[in-house]
Design a protein around this nucleic acid. Structure first.
Lengths: 166, 166
DNA sequence: TGATCGTGGATAAATAATATCCACAATAGT
DNA sequence: ACTATTGTGGATATTATTTATCCACGATCA
Protein backbone atom coordinates (compact mmCIF):
# COMPACT_ATOMS: atom_id res chain seq x y z
CA UNK A 1 0.00 0.00 0.00
CA UNK A 2 2.06 2.84 -1.28
CA UNK A 3 1.08 6.26 -2.44
CA UNK A 4 1.88 7.06 -6.06
CA UNK A 5 4.85 9.25 -6.76
CA UNK A 6 2.40 11.15 -8.94
CA UNK A 7 1.02 12.69 -5.77
CA UNK A 8 4.37 14.23 -4.90
CA UNK A 9 4.78 15.49 -8.44
CA UNK A 10 1.31 17.00 -8.47
CA UNK A 11 1.82 18.81 -5.18
CA UNK A 12 5.16 20.22 -6.27
CA UNK A 13 3.68 21.34 -9.55
CA UNK A 14 0.79 23.10 -7.86
CA UNK A 15 3.17 24.83 -5.49
CA UNK A 16 5.11 26.16 -8.44
CA UNK A 17 1.91 27.32 -10.09
CA UNK A 18 0.84 28.93 -6.82
CA UNK A 19 3.95 31.14 -6.85
CA UNK A 20 3.28 32.20 -10.42
CA UNK A 21 2.30 35.87 -10.92
CA UNK A 22 -1.22 36.65 -12.11
CA UNK A 23 -2.01 35.99 -15.76
CA UNK A 24 1.12 33.98 -16.38
CA UNK A 25 1.48 30.29 -17.16
CA UNK A 26 4.07 27.56 -17.10
CA UNK A 27 4.39 24.91 -19.75
CA UNK A 28 4.50 21.20 -18.94
CA UNK A 29 7.99 20.63 -20.24
CA UNK A 30 9.45 23.36 -18.04
CA UNK A 31 7.79 21.83 -15.00
CA UNK A 32 8.99 18.30 -15.68
CA UNK A 33 12.53 19.57 -16.15
CA UNK A 34 12.42 21.39 -12.84
CA UNK A 35 10.99 18.37 -10.99
CA UNK A 36 13.39 16.05 -12.80
CA UNK A 37 10.61 13.65 -13.71
CA UNK A 38 9.32 12.01 -16.84
CA UNK A 39 7.79 14.64 -19.15
CA UNK A 40 5.12 12.31 -20.50
CA UNK A 41 3.89 11.17 -17.13
CA UNK A 42 3.80 14.71 -15.83
CA UNK A 43 1.69 15.71 -18.81
CA UNK A 44 -0.71 12.96 -17.87
CA UNK A 45 -0.85 14.25 -14.32
CA UNK A 46 -1.51 17.76 -15.60
CA UNK A 47 -4.51 16.51 -17.51
CA UNK A 48 -5.85 14.96 -14.32
CA UNK A 49 -5.40 18.24 -12.47
CA UNK A 50 -7.15 20.11 -15.26
CA UNK A 51 -10.06 17.68 -15.31
CA UNK A 52 -10.35 17.96 -11.55
CA UNK A 53 -10.69 21.70 -11.95
CA UNK A 54 -7.54 22.54 -10.01
CA UNK A 55 -5.61 23.88 -12.97
CA UNK A 56 -6.44 25.93 -16.03
CA UNK A 57 -4.76 25.27 -19.33
CA UNK A 58 -4.26 27.32 -22.44
CA UNK A 59 -2.96 25.81 -25.66
CA UNK A 60 -0.97 27.58 -28.29
CA UNK A 61 2.39 29.14 -28.72
CA UNK A 62 2.37 31.01 -25.43
CA UNK A 63 0.22 28.46 -23.66
CA UNK A 64 0.72 26.60 -20.42
CA UNK A 65 -0.85 25.92 -17.06
CA UNK A 66 -1.99 28.08 -14.18
CA UNK A 67 -3.83 27.60 -10.91
CA UNK A 68 -7.60 27.59 -11.31
CA UNK A 69 -8.26 28.47 -7.67
CA UNK A 70 -6.71 30.44 -4.90
CA UNK A 71 -3.95 28.57 -3.06
CA UNK A 72 -5.97 28.53 0.15
CA UNK A 73 -8.85 26.87 -1.68
CA UNK A 74 -6.89 23.83 -2.85
CA UNK A 75 -6.53 21.17 -0.16
CA UNK A 76 -4.17 18.23 -0.21
CA UNK A 77 -7.17 15.98 -0.35
CA UNK A 78 -8.37 17.71 -3.52
CA UNK A 79 -5.02 16.90 -5.06
CA UNK A 80 -5.13 13.36 -3.79
CA UNK A 81 -8.57 12.83 -5.31
CA UNK A 82 -7.43 14.27 -8.61
CA UNK A 83 -4.40 11.98 -8.78
CA UNK A 84 -5.56 8.79 -7.10
CA UNK A 85 -9.22 8.96 -7.95
CA UNK A 86 -12.16 8.20 -5.76
CA UNK A 87 -12.73 4.75 -4.38
CA UNK A 88 -10.72 4.87 -1.19
CA UNK A 89 -7.81 2.70 -0.18
CA UNK A 90 -9.70 -0.25 1.18
CA UNK A 91 -12.01 -2.26 -1.01
CA UNK A 92 -13.96 -5.24 0.15
CA UNK A 93 -13.02 -8.27 -1.92
CA UNK A 94 -15.68 -10.50 -0.48
CA UNK A 95 -13.45 -12.61 1.71
CA UNK A 96 -15.46 -11.72 4.79
CA UNK A 97 -18.71 -12.72 3.22
CA UNK A 98 -17.14 -15.97 2.06
CA UNK A 99 -16.48 -16.75 5.66
CA UNK A 100 -19.80 -15.73 7.11
CA UNK A 101 -22.23 -16.46 4.36
CA UNK A 102 -23.76 -19.90 4.83
CA UNK A 103 -24.40 -21.47 1.46
CA UNK A 104 -25.76 -19.21 -1.21
CA UNK A 105 -26.79 -16.44 1.15
CA UNK A 106 -24.62 -13.51 0.27
CA UNK A 107 -23.49 -10.44 2.14
CA UNK A 108 -25.97 -8.50 4.21
CA UNK A 109 -23.95 -5.66 2.80
CA UNK A 110 -21.59 -4.16 5.27
CA UNK A 111 -18.32 -5.86 5.90
CA UNK A 112 -17.20 -5.27 9.47
CA UNK A 113 -13.63 -4.64 8.45
CA UNK A 114 -14.70 -2.17 5.81
CA UNK A 115 -16.48 -0.17 8.44
CA UNK A 116 -13.34 0.27 10.52
CA UNK A 117 -11.25 1.02 7.48
CA UNK A 118 -13.59 3.75 6.40
CA UNK A 119 -13.35 5.31 9.84
CA UNK A 120 -9.57 5.22 9.67
CA UNK A 121 -9.55 6.66 6.19
CA UNK A 122 -11.85 9.45 7.30
CA UNK A 123 -9.40 10.44 10.02
CA UNK A 124 -6.67 10.43 7.41
CA UNK A 125 -8.68 12.53 4.98
CA UNK A 126 -9.47 15.10 7.63
CA UNK A 127 -5.79 15.85 8.06
CA UNK A 128 -5.32 16.24 4.32
CA UNK A 129 -8.34 18.50 4.09
CA UNK A 130 -6.90 20.91 6.60
CA UNK A 131 -3.76 21.42 4.59
CA UNK A 132 -3.89 23.72 1.58
CA UNK A 133 -1.40 24.98 -0.97
CA UNK A 134 -1.33 28.21 1.03
CA UNK A 135 -0.43 26.47 4.28
CA UNK A 136 2.17 24.37 2.50
CA UNK A 137 3.75 27.48 1.04
CA UNK A 138 3.90 28.97 4.49
CA UNK A 139 5.71 25.91 5.81
CA UNK A 140 8.05 26.02 2.87
CA UNK A 141 8.96 29.59 3.68
CA UNK A 142 9.90 28.45 7.17
CA UNK A 143 11.75 25.35 6.07
CA UNK A 144 13.91 26.52 3.21
CA UNK A 145 16.38 29.36 3.11
CA UNK A 146 15.33 32.59 1.44
CA UNK A 147 18.08 31.98 -1.11
CA UNK A 148 16.30 28.87 -2.30
CA UNK A 149 12.98 30.62 -2.53
CA UNK A 150 14.61 33.44 -4.44
CA UNK A 151 16.21 30.94 -6.76
CA UNK A 152 12.84 29.33 -7.35
CA UNK A 153 11.20 32.65 -8.11
CA UNK A 154 14.04 33.54 -10.45
CA UNK A 155 13.56 30.29 -12.27
CA UNK A 156 9.82 30.93 -12.46
CA UNK A 157 10.25 34.35 -14.03
CA UNK A 158 12.70 32.88 -16.50
CA UNK A 159 10.17 30.27 -17.53
CA UNK A 160 6.78 31.92 -17.27
CA UNK A 161 4.67 33.00 -20.17
CA UNK A 162 2.40 36.01 -20.13
CA UNK A 163 -1.19 35.39 -21.03
CA UNK A 164 -2.54 37.41 -23.87
CA UNK A 165 -5.11 39.97 -22.77
CA UNK A 166 -8.51 39.04 -24.09
CA UNK B 1 -3.06 3.56 -3.47
CA UNK B 2 -4.95 0.46 -2.61
CA UNK B 3 -4.67 -1.81 0.36
CA UNK B 4 -3.64 -5.37 -0.39
CA UNK B 5 -6.31 -8.02 -0.36
CA UNK B 6 -3.85 -9.85 1.85
CA UNK B 7 -4.96 -7.59 4.68
CA UNK B 8 -8.54 -8.76 4.40
CA UNK B 9 -7.41 -12.37 4.25
CA UNK B 10 -5.18 -11.97 7.27
CA UNK B 11 -7.91 -10.38 9.36
CA UNK B 12 -10.41 -13.08 8.45
CA UNK B 13 -7.90 -15.75 9.25
CA UNK B 14 -7.10 -14.28 12.64
CA UNK B 15 -10.80 -14.01 13.43
CA UNK B 16 -11.20 -17.70 12.70
CA UNK B 17 -8.21 -18.50 14.88
CA UNK B 18 -9.64 -16.30 17.62
CA UNK B 19 -12.80 -18.44 17.75
CA UNK B 20 -10.74 -21.60 18.01
CA UNK B 21 -10.95 -23.46 21.35
CA UNK B 22 -7.83 -23.63 23.50
CA UNK B 23 -5.09 -25.99 22.42
CA UNK B 24 -6.49 -26.56 18.97
CA UNK B 25 -5.13 -25.50 15.60
CA UNK B 26 -6.28 -25.00 12.05
CA UNK B 27 -4.25 -25.95 9.01
CA UNK B 28 -3.54 -23.53 6.19
CA UNK B 29 -5.39 -25.47 3.54
CA UNK B 30 -8.60 -25.52 5.57
CA UNK B 31 -8.40 -21.76 6.02
CA UNK B 32 -7.81 -21.00 2.36
CA UNK B 33 -10.75 -23.20 1.42
CA UNK B 34 -13.00 -21.37 3.83
CA UNK B 35 -11.87 -17.93 2.64
CA UNK B 36 -12.02 -19.07 -0.99
CA UNK B 37 -8.57 -17.69 -1.71
CA UNK B 38 -5.35 -18.97 -3.20
CA UNK B 39 -3.81 -21.60 -0.90
CA UNK B 40 -0.25 -20.66 -1.74
CA UNK B 41 -0.68 -16.98 -1.12
CA UNK B 42 -2.47 -17.62 2.13
CA UNK B 43 0.41 -19.79 3.25
CA UNK B 44 2.71 -16.90 2.54
CA UNK B 45 0.52 -14.63 4.62
CA UNK B 46 0.55 -17.13 7.44
CA UNK B 47 4.31 -17.05 7.49
CA UNK B 48 4.19 -13.28 7.82
CA UNK B 49 1.78 -13.53 10.72
CA UNK B 50 4.00 -16.09 12.42
CA UNK B 51 7.10 -13.98 11.96
CA UNK B 52 5.25 -10.98 13.34
CA UNK B 53 4.48 -13.02 16.43
CA UNK B 54 0.72 -12.93 15.99
CA UNK B 55 0.32 -16.61 15.26
CA UNK B 56 1.91 -19.80 16.52
CA UNK B 57 2.56 -22.70 14.22
CA UNK B 58 3.13 -26.35 14.79
CA UNK B 59 4.32 -28.62 12.02
CA UNK B 60 3.56 -32.26 11.71
CA UNK B 61 0.66 -34.55 11.10
CA UNK B 62 -1.71 -32.80 13.47
CA UNK B 63 -0.12 -29.42 13.05
CA UNK B 64 -1.59 -26.07 12.13
CA UNK B 65 -1.91 -22.49 13.31
CA UNK B 66 -3.26 -20.86 16.43
CA UNK B 67 -3.39 -17.36 17.88
CA UNK B 68 -0.23 -16.41 19.75
CA UNK B 69 -1.90 -13.68 21.80
CA UNK B 70 -5.25 -12.94 23.33
CA UNK B 71 -7.75 -11.48 20.85
CA UNK B 72 -7.85 -8.18 22.77
CA UNK B 73 -4.08 -7.88 22.41
CA UNK B 74 -4.00 -8.01 18.63
CA UNK B 75 -4.80 -4.67 17.00
CA UNK B 76 -5.66 -4.07 13.38
CA UNK B 77 -2.46 -2.08 13.10
CA UNK B 78 -0.45 -5.08 14.27
CA UNK B 79 -1.99 -7.04 11.44
CA UNK B 80 -1.39 -4.25 8.99
CA UNK B 81 2.26 -4.06 9.94
CA UNK B 82 2.63 -7.81 9.61
CA UNK B 83 1.12 -7.84 6.14
CA UNK B 84 2.20 -4.54 4.62
CA UNK B 85 5.45 -4.10 6.47
CA UNK B 86 6.86 -0.95 7.98
CA UNK B 87 7.72 2.00 5.84
CA UNK B 88 4.41 3.81 5.72
CA UNK B 89 2.31 4.68 2.71
CA UNK B 90 4.08 7.85 1.69
CA UNK B 91 7.70 7.81 0.70
CA UNK B 92 9.64 10.84 -0.34
CA UNK B 93 11.01 10.35 -3.82
CA UNK B 94 13.08 13.47 -3.82
CA UNK B 95 10.91 15.55 -6.10
CA UNK B 96 10.56 18.25 -3.50
CA UNK B 97 14.27 18.55 -3.00
CA UNK B 98 14.75 18.70 -6.76
CA UNK B 99 12.60 21.77 -6.79
CA UNK B 100 14.09 23.54 -3.82
CA UNK B 101 17.69 22.48 -3.84
CA UNK B 102 19.83 25.04 -5.67
CA UNK B 103 22.65 23.29 -7.47
CA UNK B 104 24.34 20.50 -5.65
CA UNK B 105 22.98 21.39 -2.24
CA UNK B 106 20.70 18.55 -1.33
CA UNK B 107 17.79 18.20 1.06
CA UNK B 108 18.03 19.75 4.49
CA UNK B 109 16.23 16.55 5.31
CA UNK B 110 12.56 17.05 5.93
CA UNK B 111 10.24 17.24 3.00
CA UNK B 112 7.30 19.48 3.84
CA UNK B 113 4.82 17.15 2.19
CA UNK B 114 6.22 14.16 4.03
CA UNK B 115 5.58 15.93 7.29
CA UNK B 116 1.89 16.34 6.56
CA UNK B 117 1.58 12.83 5.25
CA UNK B 118 3.06 11.41 8.39
CA UNK B 119 0.57 13.37 10.44
CA UNK B 120 -2.28 12.01 8.36
CA UNK B 121 -0.96 8.50 8.57
CA UNK B 122 -0.67 8.82 12.32
CA UNK B 123 -4.34 9.71 12.58
CA UNK B 124 -5.11 6.70 10.43
CA UNK B 125 -2.96 4.41 12.53
CA UNK B 126 -4.59 5.55 15.73
CA UNK B 127 -7.95 4.29 14.54
CA UNK B 128 -6.49 0.94 13.60
CA UNK B 129 -4.75 0.67 16.95
CA UNK B 130 -8.00 1.02 18.81
CA UNK B 131 -9.56 -1.92 17.04
CA UNK B 132 -8.63 -5.40 18.16
CA UNK B 133 -9.65 -8.90 17.19
CA UNK B 134 -11.84 -8.89 20.29
CA UNK B 135 -13.68 -5.73 19.27
CA UNK B 136 -14.08 -7.01 15.74
CA UNK B 137 -15.57 -10.24 17.03
CA UNK B 138 -18.00 -8.22 19.08
CA UNK B 139 -19.10 -6.29 16.02
CA UNK B 140 -19.42 -9.50 14.09
CA UNK B 141 -21.74 -10.90 16.72
CA UNK B 142 -23.93 -7.85 16.24
CA UNK B 143 -23.77 -7.83 12.47
CA UNK B 144 -24.34 -11.42 11.52
CA UNK B 145 -27.16 -13.72 12.49
CA UNK B 146 -26.53 -16.29 15.19
CA UNK B 147 -27.12 -18.98 12.57
CA UNK B 148 -24.09 -17.84 10.66
CA UNK B 149 -21.96 -17.74 13.75
CA UNK B 150 -23.17 -21.21 14.68
CA UNK B 151 -22.34 -22.40 11.19
CA UNK B 152 -18.89 -20.97 11.49
CA UNK B 153 -18.29 -22.64 14.83
CA UNK B 154 -19.58 -25.91 13.46
CA UNK B 155 -17.16 -25.64 10.58
CA UNK B 156 -14.36 -24.83 13.00
CA UNK B 157 -15.00 -27.91 15.11
CA UNK B 158 -15.14 -30.02 11.98
CA UNK B 159 -11.73 -28.72 10.91
CA UNK B 160 -9.77 -28.18 14.10
CA UNK B 161 -6.96 -30.33 15.31
CA UNK B 162 -6.22 -30.98 18.94
CA UNK B 163 -2.74 -30.21 20.07
CA UNK B 164 -0.88 -33.04 21.64
CA UNK B 165 -0.29 -32.53 25.35
CA UNK B 166 3.38 -32.05 26.07
C1' DT C 1 0.66 29.41 -42.74
C1' DG C 2 3.78 27.37 -39.55
C1' DA C 3 5.43 26.69 -35.07
C1' DT C 4 4.07 25.73 -30.34
C1' DC C 5 1.36 23.99 -27.08
C1' DG C 6 -2.34 21.06 -24.52
C1' DT C 7 -5.63 16.85 -25.39
C1' DG C 8 -6.56 12.28 -25.71
C1' DG C 9 -5.73 7.65 -26.67
C1' DA C 10 -2.91 3.58 -27.62
C1' DT C 11 0.68 1.10 -25.91
C1' DA C 12 5.14 -0.35 -23.81
C1' DA C 13 8.16 -0.82 -19.72
C1' DA C 14 8.76 -1.12 -14.78
C1' DT C 15 7.19 -2.34 -10.47
C1' DA C 16 4.28 -4.43 -6.99
C1' DA C 17 0.89 -7.90 -5.74
C1' DT C 18 -0.74 -12.42 -6.19
C1' DA C 19 -0.07 -17.21 -7.31
C1' DT C 20 2.44 -21.68 -8.08
C1' DC C 21 5.91 -24.96 -7.13
C1' DC C 22 9.53 -27.53 -4.89
C1' DA C 23 13.06 -29.25 -1.55
C1' DC C 24 13.37 -29.29 3.34
C1' DA C 25 12.62 -29.94 8.51
C1' DA C 26 9.62 -31.10 12.24
C1' DT C 27 5.93 -33.87 14.20
C1' DA C 28 2.65 -37.73 15.05
C1' DG C 29 1.11 -42.23 14.23
C1' DT C 30 2.40 -46.83 13.17
C1' DA D 1 12.78 -46.66 12.10
C1' DC D 2 9.39 -45.44 8.70
C1' DT D 3 5.78 -42.85 6.49
C1' DA D 4 2.37 -39.47 5.94
C1' DT D 5 1.35 -34.78 7.02
C1' DT D 6 2.25 -30.12 7.88
C1' DG D 7 4.74 -25.64 8.14
C1' DT D 8 9.24 -23.18 6.22
C1' DG D 9 11.66 -20.81 2.94
C1' DG D 10 13.03 -19.72 -1.47
C1' DA D 11 12.71 -19.47 -6.57
C1' DT D 12 9.76 -18.26 -10.03
C1' DA D 13 5.56 -17.34 -12.85
C1' DT D 14 1.33 -14.60 -13.46
C1' DT D 15 -1.47 -10.62 -13.07
C1' DA D 16 -2.55 -5.81 -11.92
C1' DT D 17 -1.09 -1.26 -11.34
C1' DT D 18 1.97 2.48 -12.03
C1' DT D 19 5.04 4.91 -14.76
C1' DA D 20 6.74 6.08 -19.31
C1' DT D 21 6.71 6.72 -24.44
C1' DC D 22 4.62 7.93 -28.66
C1' DC D 23 1.52 9.84 -32.07
C1' DA D 24 -2.45 12.23 -34.34
C1' DC D 25 -5.34 16.04 -33.33
C1' DG D 26 -7.14 20.85 -32.36
C1' DA D 27 -6.35 25.41 -30.49
C1' DT D 28 -3.56 29.58 -30.23
C1' DC D 29 -0.42 33.02 -31.62
C1' DA D 30 3.14 35.16 -34.54
Amino acid sequence: MRMKSGMEQAVCTLILLARLPERTTLKAEAISERLEVSPSYLKKLMRMLVQAGLVDSTPGTRGGFSLAKKPEEVTLYDIFLAVEGRGGMYRDRGVFTSVFACEGQRSTGTCVLGHVMRRAEKAWVEVLEQETLASLLQQIRKTYSSERLAEMDAWLTSQLREEVNE
